[in-house]
Amino acid sequence: MDFNWTEEQAAFRAQIREVLARTLPENWEHIAHGPASKEQTVFAKKICADLAEAGLLVPHWPSEWGGRDADPWEAFILAEEMWMAGEPRGGQYMNVNWIGPILMLFGSELQKETHIMPMAKGQTLWCQGFSEPESGSDLASLRTRAVKNGDTYTINGQKIWTSYAGDADTCFLLARTSDGKNGISIFLVPMDTPGITVRDIPSIIGEGDIHEVFFDDVQVHEKWRLGEEGQAWEIIGQVLSLERVGIPRFSLASKTLKDAVSLLKKEGRFTGAAIDQAAKAHAACEAARWYSYFIIDKRAKKIQAGPEASVGRFSTVICERLVSEFVVEHVPEAISGVHPMLLAHHQRGIVAGVASGAAEIQLNIIATQFLELPREPR
C-alpha cells in the first residue's frame, strides 16, 4: 500500500471541504446532533441534491448511473469528510454506500431504472428492514414471512431498530419465503404501501432515529423481489462487506477527540489521566482508520473483503466507545448540549456496538472465520 495521497485525491478532499464550508448552515452543529430529526432529514435532501449537482454524491458509481467511475478511494475520502462534518447526507449514505451498488449488481432493469437515478440525484431516502424483535443481527432466524399467491407476495411480520423508517420512501426488506438459511428473499417495498405501520422508539440518540415497522398483509408484486427467491444470503454477504467498512465513523470520533482535547487545553484541564485516556482513544482511532484503509486497498484491487470487514467494523466500535468515554469523563458538559458536535458523536457512539451488526456478532465472525478458532474446546 502507498501511504501517500495522490495529488488528485488531495484535491478531491479539498473540494469536498470547500463545498461543505460553503453549504452547511450556521446552525449546522445544532442540526447534526439529531441524526434523523425532521430538520436534519429535510436538510439532507437539500445538500444531497447540491452534492449530486457538483458531482460529489456518487462519484464512484458508473457513469451510466450518474457517477463518473471514480475508484473506491474517492468513495472513502467522500465518506470520511462527510462523517467528519457530522454526516450531512443523513440516511442517504446507505443509498450511496450499498443500496445503489447492490441494485446495479442484482436488480432487474425495471428496478434499476426506477430506483437508481433518484438515488444519484439525492432525491430519495431508504431504510433497511433487517433486525427483528427476536432475531437482531442473527438474520437466519428472522420470522417476517412473504407468501406467494400468483404474482404477488403477502408479507406479515415486524422489524425493529429501523433507522429513518419514519421518512423513508422505500424499504430494503428481508423476508422469509421458505424455511432454512437459504429461504430468505429481498423485497424493495414502497413505505406507503397499505398495511405498513411505523412507530417511533423513544431514545436518547436523536429525534426519530429508530422505529418499529409492522407489516400486516402487505401486498408486494414479484417484480419488486430483488434477485431470486432464497438469494438473500448471497446478496447480504456483499451488502455487509460494503456497509461495515463504508461508514468511517472513526473520522467523526477522531475529530471529536481532537476538539475535546483542544477545549481541555484552553481551560488548563488536559493533564494526568486525561492525557493517558486521550492517547489510548487516539491510538484506537488510528487503528480503525488504517485497518479500514487496508480493506479499501483490497477493494481497489478488486479483492472482495471477507471476515476482515468484521475486524474493521469492531475496531471502529472500540474507538467510538473510547472517545465517548473520554468525553463523558472529561468534558461532561458536552452531553447537556453545551458543545453540540461532541453531543452528536456521543449519540452516535451509544449505538456503535449495534448499528451495522451487533459487536458480539462481529466477534463471533472474527473468531470463527478470521482466526478460525474452534466453536468448542478440543
Rank of each mutant, 00 (worst) to 15 (best):
D2T: 08
D2H: 11
W5R: 09
W5T: 10
T6C: 10
E7C: 12
Q9T: 02
A10D: 05
R22C: 13
H30D: 12
H30G: 11
H30P: 15
H33E: 12
P35S: 11
K38H: 08
V42E: 05
C48A: 14
G55S: 11
W61Y: 13
A70N: 08
A70T: 09
E74Q: 15
A79F: 02
W83D: 01
W83V: 01
W83R: 00
A85I: 05
G86V: 01
M104E: 14
M104V: 09
Q111F: 05
A120Q: 08
Q123Y: 14
T124S: 11
W126Q: 06
C127D: 10
C127A: 09
Q128E: 13
G129E: 08
P133L: 15
S137A: 07
D138P: 08
G150T: 12
N156M: 12
W161D: 11
D167F: 04
D169Q: 07
D179I: 01
I186C: 15
I186H: 12
I186F: 08
F187N: 05
L188S: 06
D200K: 04
P202F: 04
I205Q: 06
E207H: 04
I210E: 14
V213W: 06
K223V: 05
R225C: 13
E228Q: 10
E234G: 14
L242M: 03
E243G: 04
R249T: 02
L252R: 00
S254Q: 07
L257Q: 00
K258W: 05
A260T: 04
R269I: 08
T271A: 13
A274K: 01
D276K: 13
D276I: 15
C285D: 03
C285T: 03
A287L: 02
R289H: 05
A305C: 11
E308S: 07
E308K: 03
V311L: 09
F314K: 06
V317S: 01
F326V: 12
V327P: 01
V328R: 13
G337R: 04
L343C: 13
V351M: 01
V354Y: 06
S356M: 10
N364Q: 14
I365K: 10
Q369D: 01
E376V: 09
